[in-house]
């Protein structure tokens, strides 16, 4: 297990940015990867800069699951959030950065009183959300790809696209309910 996934060390009532060491010695995590954490009394935030690999996708998915658990989402919603974030990370690594080892992806996880907000960004050529084919259309229903953004939208309350020049940032928001006491 990656002990760096534990975000309990984020201190409440502070507003420091802490650069937390990289990983637990696994060779597949490059030294360029980093993580920062920011927290105050109402918000906790952790962010990662990772290489363009499937290992990064898996890591981001794991963190998403942990953040969703901490935010108090129910057992049906947690895997949906994790899947939506995984799909965003896959898009960033595969379609955005095209596995380019010189490019990185960033992922931030912010828990506020109202929402869990996840941002995933790449350094690719950019993505025009209006040009994404509808995977439910009869002519697309048997396509072997093209369902990632659709699933993200299905599982999250809000999905926003921002062009970074270069790259694309997806912001995924899931609203918490009053019954979710979480972090």
């Amino acid at each position: 297990m990656l002990d760096s996934l534990d975000i309990r060390e984020i201190h409440k009532h502070t507003a420091i940015i802490a650069v937390v060491g990289s990983y637990d010695g696994r060779d597949d995590w490059h030294t360029g990867n980093s993580r920062t954490a920011l927290a105050d009394s109402t918000t906790s935030r952790v962010s990662y800069t990772l290489d363009s690999s499937l290992d990064s996708v898996n890591k981001i998915e794991q963190v998403a699951e942990q953040c969703a658990q901490r935010a108090g989402f129910d057992e049906d919603t947690i895997p949906q959030i994790a899947m939506a974030v995984r799909e965003a990370a896959v898009n960033a690594v595969l379609h955005g950065n095209a596995y380019d080892s010189t490019k990185h992806i960033t992922a931030s996880f912010e828990t506020t009183a109202d929402s869990l907000i996840i941002r995933v960004a790449d350094q690719g050529l950019g993505l025009d959300p209006d040009k994404i084919p509808d995977p439910l259309a009869p002519e697309n229903i048997l396509r072997g790809s093209g369902r990632g953004i659709f699933l993200i939208k299905a599982f999250m309350d809000e999905v926003n696209f921002r062009q970074l020049h270069p790259g694309t940032e997806l912001t995924l928001i899931k609203h918490r309910t009053p019954a979710q006491p979480g972090t």
């Binding site: 895997p79 899947m83 995984r86 896959v90 048997l142 396509r143 072997g144 790809s145 093209g146 659709f150």
Partner: peptide, 16 residues
């Protein structure tokens, strides 16, 4: 126990 959009796509491709 888990399938993502790529996995769904793979099922569709296998089917076709």
């Amino acid at each position: 126990n888990y399938i993502d959009s790529s996995g769904i796509g793979e099922l569709v491709s296998a089917f076709t």
